[in-house]
Design a protein around this nucleic acid. Structure first.
Lengths: 257, 257
DNA sequence: TCGGCCGTTGCGCACTCTGCAACGTCCATT
DNA sequence: AATGGACGTTGCAGAGTGCGCAACGGCCGA
């Protein structure tokens, strides 16, 4: 691994917390000011950081553009979107699409609820991986050793009394989810918000994405939301079908890791 | 400028065009495969690139997260959003918020039209800088030398017959915009889409952002859209007021050990 | 079975990055 | 108005680090 690049890239999450001046960056990186300056200059030339009038640095414009182009290259998203929109049209609730990547699960698309009370989330924001319904689906599909390894590495924050408490409970939950082919989050992240989710599979049967419908208690009860499960599953299957269909005959996949 | 970091960062826009394998990356960078590999590994460890099952690289998840955190740190956005939503509520049209940064203008917020026919745009996407109404406002406020330098550097694509043809016309337009304090784009980017825009100013009077209302011909005529100008300007002024008010003259930041 | 393609590894050389120290500037303080 | 300090910037010499080369190994198609 390249030390120089490593240091430069470490600046980005640092600046994500808010603007910082040269000295602060150098301190937090543990390098000399002149070094930090050179790195920041390079990042600047690539548009990844921006220098404000007060000379402090913050994350730059090209970062948005890159993230944007990146998300547009995800073909699952393209294919799923009309289905998500239709489901939102029909139910009125917030619909999410999420993928798994290197131990993180993040939303890559979202259709907002029609109701005034909405849940907070953002495309690109990593989800609460130990409780979110979509996360359970995505992780439940991992090969068993990976699943165990990941579960062991995770933190298990107690967002609510119903949050997954530890790795054992999580693995148990994943097994259940894997078995039944759908997942829920009933107040595990925020007390008053429930979700039901279903997996989207590629041609080889592996889970490539997951979608969910979320709604707060004040709009519909958990039971009413669960009644939507068949609809959610059908939607996910429709997306899976579209996705497998339009994806050209994939090169052979090595199943055993 | 750091060579290593420079090379590493050059990989990102390259991957933004689509996934690529190691050889392609090395070729396009003009370096040896082993070098490209090391750079990609470093980028990977920071989550900026992701390696798919077919071993090809594409942009990674953390990029989204970073862009997300970045946009949330823009306080103009925070302050402007309710106003934009209100304007959308009242007019039904698409409302945009944009800022200028290092010769690029990009949308940082958007409220979607209520009408079924919508214009295509995305938060984070750089706008057509030579024709967009918000771009004119932001660039018109630059000091004259910078304005000239930037105008000279730009390309002037002929999106439509009404697109700004060259630097001279652009500078002329900027002068007009600067004078009148608002801007329009009448079919300059896409034949059937019109915009009206107004500037948002900081406490020192400089333009820090610009907002616009856009609608296609099929929904409202250009005249009808122009009739919204006073409303748009009032909204922009309200945001400017909020922004100047809530931004303290200077904030001091302490560094916790 | 063989050949080619691609990703990966170890290594020695030298290029490039590093930290230091000194300078210029701006601002707050006396 | 003068002084001190904080901060960003620059040039430099040393060495640490990234560079390309060459060889290996796995995979796939011939």
């Amino acid at each position: 691994m390249s030390q120089t690049v490593d240091r430069a890239l470490s600046i980005l999450p640092l600046l994500a917390q808010g603007p910082a001046d040269l000295g602060q960056v150098a301190d937090r990186l543990g390098v000399h000011k002149s070094t930090a300056l050179r790195l920041l200059r390079t990042l600047h030339e690539h548009g990844l950081v921006y220098r404000q009038q007060d000379q402090r640095y913050r994350l730059g414009a090209r970062l948005f553009a890159l993230a944007q182009e990146a998300v547009e290259n995800l073909d699952v998203r393209e294919i799923a979107h009309p289905h998500l929109a239709a489901l939102n049209e029909r139910t009125g609730h917030t619909v999410h699409l999420a993928v798994h990547e290197d131990g993180e699960v993040l939303y890559i698309d979202k259709v907002e609820s029609r109701y005034p009370v909405r849940m907070y989330s953002r495309i690109g924001k990593p989800v609460a991986i130990t409780v979110a319904a979509v996360a359970k689906l995505l992780l439940a599909d991992l090969p068993e050793p990976e699943r165990r390894a990941l579960a062991a590495k995770l933190d298990y924050p107690r967002y609510t009394p119903r949050s997954t408490p530890d790795a054992a409970a999580f693995l148990q939950e994943l097994a259940t989810v894997r078995e039944q082919g759908w997942a829920t989050d009933l107040g595990g992240h925020e007390e008053s918000i429930n979700c039901v989710a279903a997996p989207i599979r590629g041609a080889d049967g592996r889970v490539v994405a997951a979608m969910s419908v979320s709604a707060p208690n004040v709009v519909v009860t958990a039971e009413e939301l669960l009644a939507l499960l068949p609809l959610v599953r059908r939607t996910a299957e429709a997306i899976s079908h579209d996705y497998s269909g339009t994806t050209p005959p994939k090169e052979t996949e090595e199943t055993p890791a």
